[in-house]
Design a protein around this nucleic acid. Structure first.
Length: 744
DNA sequence: TTATATTGTCATGTG
DNA sequence: CCCACATGACAATAT
């Protein structure tokens, strides 16, 4: 948990730093208040994911991040342009509003891939576009970031159009991507993946082969990877038909997108031209299958070239440098930079954050001293007034506050005195006395610290919700959708590929189901927003669900990282052992019982599909029982994760609320001190004037009036009267009673 | 090895 | 009644 908190806080800091670097003005206060939610979600990602209903939101895209890396892997493995074009085509299909995000993501990867891989002709376009765009991107980002991460895709569209006018199609695309990145904020786990992949790439082929050859592995892995695709493939019935259907649906959706049709056409046109075969299903499918198999062995999908170029340690520098050539990487890198660099940046950022609180504290400090002085002075003023008035009156006036007033001037003074006294009383009641005035300073300081904390604390239930909703949407999307999009298959493959092992599958499933934690954990541990974006796509449903949860990140990490080493060592057996270790108990049981489908399917398939699946196989009673237990436990696992995330989120929100209240309290106390001080000054002024006027008064004999016998009193019309003390006392008493009566 | 934190599982309740 | 989900409690596991 601590590490996670660190990550999220660091992520916030980094993000802010990034924004500042980009040129976006970061208002920490507003950021905390208004924009914190998104950040918080990022940090608390899991919490946001709590609400299952929210899975469909953008966050889900985060969940899908896993896919994205895989897509990159595909590029690495398959140099053929055909894949890229296909992917793009797929992206198009997914263009529909929510899907638009995914589409953008894909493009980035492509661009990055193209940039990295000279083989693809597309690369030239994408790379050039990226480079050109880099400048504009920043500007766009500013607006984007300002608007908020959690904003809907529609918002993106709305924002993008203005920018697009000057920008080229490619630029627009890039902007969209950047926009999405900003929204997602997730650091790409790609870095991790990359590291693994570089090492594993060679091994991956072997793994792929193994997966294909493996009796249990291939089937499970493929199934897990793209339930849609695989399912179809398994049945062999629905797959072909579904694909076209999905495409048509996607194309239809595209026009409806927020972006103007013209823009869309422009954006799409490049892709379309490049894509030979959205319809070349067989080849795509084969490629996807092969990729999936390969990936299945690799738990993680390292697509990022960033790793190659730069060590994960320097996400920022490397990312930025890479950005021009590799849009995806850039995006990822940016996220990562914000996230990964958090620790490093944190120190830098912290000062800034603290500066605000400090400033307030500094302001407070002067106040506090003044307050203490003011309090004393106020008392002094009262004493002064007492000097003017007869001792008796003064004594009474101090206690009652009323008696003094009766005097001619007493009226004014009385009110001021009363107010002051009342304030003082309040202060005392509240525990805010002169002594405490000094304490205020401390409070302020502490408050400043609190404010800092608050800033750190992510506060955005909404964001979490959004993420959760996105995940849910992705999950909701039917399996048919998965079959439809080859691109989706990539993402799924990535997830599936490594997940092909029962373990990975379970993890994915669990994650997808949970939806909330994935954000948090994913974001913190590894940044793979892009994949998440992919998850937005319907076909990615499986992946998204699985990825979302906390477990996923840890599992993914463990799964991803270890495999590379094992793979390098080069023994399939080792890999198998590792996979076995990674597999959950239920997975082992399922394997032992020779259950013909993956745990992921068992757990995540809708009831109808689940029953249908069961009906397709002749399973023994023991197998059926085990399957039902696996489903029950799997769902409960996700539920528990959601529950815990929700709980954590609630606690964090409460914590934030407490901090806010403490800040408010400090502010109010400071204001109170200021008012008291100003009141004291006014009193002193009135007293000095009173003395001056009273001292100049002379009776008919030219003798000054005795302060003990006479007093000045302000009349309602602004005139000043000299009246005997007795009258003044009486009037003062009357005035005292009135307020008391009112109070009653 | 122990203490703590995390995660998985079960039982139960709710919608 | 079934299903999905949420949640407290406990166990298992990881750190």
């Amino acid at each position: 948990m601590l590490s996670l908190k660190k990550y999220f806080t660091e992520g916030l800091l980094q993000f802010t730093i990034l924004l500042s670097l980009i040129g976006v003005r970061v208002d920490v206060d507003t950021y905390l208040t208004s924009q914190l939610p998104p950040l918080r979600e990022i940090i608390l990602g899991p919490s946001s994911a709590y609400t299952q209903t929210q899975f469909h939101n953008l966050r889900n895209t985060l969940d899908g991040y896993g896919i994205h890396p895989k897509s990159i892997d595909l590029d690495n493995y398959f140099t053929a342009r055909r894949l890229l074009s296909q992917v793009r085509a797929l992206d198009r299909f997914q263009v529909p509003t929510t899907e638009v995000n995914a589409w953008l993501v894909h493009r980035d990867p492509e661009g990055s891939v193209s940039g990295s891989q000279p083989s693809s002709g597309l690369t030239l376009e994408s790379s050039s576009g990226l480079q050109d765009v880099t400048g504009p991107d920043n500007g766009v980002r500013e607006s984007e970031t300002e608007q908020g991460f959690s904003e809907d895709l529609e918002d993106l569209g709305a924002v993008a159009p203005p920018v697009t006018g000057d920008l080229t199609k490619e630029d627009i695309d890039l902007i969209d991507i950047l926009w999405r990145q900003d929204i997602d904020l997730g650091a790409g786990r790609e870095i991790f993946d990359y590291s693994h992949r570089q090492k594993e790439q060679d091994v991956d082929k072997e793994l792929r082969d193994e997966g294909e050859q493996g009796d249990t592995w291939p089937g499970e892995g493929t199934e897990a990877l793209a339930r849609n695709l695989l399912v179809d493939g398994e049945t062999g019935e629905s797959f072909p038909a579904q694909f076209p259907a999905d495409i048509s649906s996607i194309t239809e959706v595209v026009p409806t997108e927020s972006e103007p049709p013209a823009l869309q056409n422009n954006l799409l046109s490049p892709l379309l031209t490049g894509t030979e075969s959205p319809f070349d299903l067989e080849q795509q499918w084969q490629d996807l299958m092969s990729i999936m198999e390969m990936q299945a062995m690799e738990v993680n999908t390292s697509t990022s070239e960033i790793l190659y170029n730069s060590p994960p340690g320097d996400p920022l520098s490397t990312n930025y440098s890479l950005a021009p050539n590799t849009p995806i990487n850039q995006n990822v890198s940016l996220h990562q930079a914000s996230l990964g660099g958090c620790s490093q940046d944190f120190s830098l950022f912290s000062p800034e954050v603290e500066s605000l609180p400090v400033a307030s504290s500094s302001t407070l400090l002067p106040l506090t001293p003044s307050n203490s002085t003011s309090l004393n002075s106020t008392f002094g003023s009262t004493n002064l007034s007492g000097l003017f008035f007869p001792p008796q009156l003064n004594g009474t006036s101090n206690d009652t506050a009323g008696p003094e007033l009766p005097d001619p001037l007493g009226g004014l003074l009385d009110e001021a005195m009363l107010d002051e006294i009342s304030l003082m009383d309040l202060a005392i009641e509240e525990g805010f006395n002169p002594v405490q005035a000094s304490q205020l300073e401390e409070e302020f300081d502490s408050d400043s610290g609190l404010s800092l904390d608050s800033s750190h604390s992510p506060s955005s239930l909404s964001s979490s919700e959004g993420s959760s909703s996105s995940s849910s949407s992705s999950s909701s999307s039917s399996s048919s959708s998965s079959s439809s999009s080859a691109s989706s298959s990539f993402s799924e493959e990535g997830a599936v590929g490594y997940s092909s092992d029962s373990e990975t599958l379970d993890l994915e499933e669990a994650e997808g189901a949970v939806g909330y934690q994935p954000e948090y954990s994913k974001f913190c541990r590894m940044s793979y927003q892009d994949p998440s974006q992919l998850s937005c796509l319907p076909y990615l449903e499986h992946v998204g669900h699985n990825h979302t949860y906390n477990m996923a990140p840890s599992a993914l990490d463990s799964a991803n990282l270890p495999p590379p080493s094992t793979l390098k060592k080069g023994s399939k057996e080792k890999q198998a052992d590792f996979l076995d270790k990674q597999m959950s108990r239920d997975e082992h049981r399922a394997r032992a019982m020779k259950i013909p489908f993956t745990n992921d399917k068992i757990i995540n398939l809708p009831v109808e599909e689940f029953n249908e699946l069961l009906s397709k196989y002749q399973l023994s009673e023991a197998q059926l029982s085990l399957i039902r237990d696996i489903r029950r436990r799997g769902k409960n696992k996700m539920a528990a994760q959601n529950c815990r995330k929700r709980k954590l989120d609630t606690i964090l929100n409460l914590e934030r609320d407490v901090e806010d209240l403490q800040r408010d309290k400090t502010r109010l106390l400071r204001e109170k001190v200021e008012f008291l001080r100003s009141l004291r000054q006014m009193k002193q002024k009135v007293q000095s004037l009173y003395q001056e006027v009273f001292g100049r008064l002379r009776d008919e004999h030219g003798r000054p009036y005795s302060p003990s016998q006479y007093a000045l009193q302000y009349a309602g019309d602004g005139s000043v009267l000299l009246i005997p003390r007795t009258l003044a006392d009486q009037q003062a008493r009357r005035q005292e009673r009135k307020p008391k009566d009112r109070r009653k």
